[in-house]
Amino acid sequence: MENLKLELKAKIIENLNLEDIEVSDIKNTDALFGDGLGLDSIDALELIVMLDKDYGIKLSDPKQGKVIFESIDTMAAYISENKTK
């Protein structure tokens, strides 16, 4: 699980082009959207594709992302439960 969390942080930084942020800057409980990391709706769509491409999880409704992408913790929990690859 801890490895998955580190992996997710690195992927988020790379896929979303967060040039000024390091893996160590993101806490597992930090809010990814809004006041936390400051991600927005476009980032949510990027993350949905990441789930599909890297973990074989398909979301059909972008609204589902709101809960899943709350923090690194929630993301990692959802992925380890639902991944197909």
Binding site: N15, I42, L45, E46, V49, D52, K53
Partner: peptide
């Protein structure tokens, strides 16, 4: 497949 929106928008 696996296209993301950022480049498009």
């Amino acid at each position: 497949q696996f296209l993301t929106p950022t480049a498009f928008i």
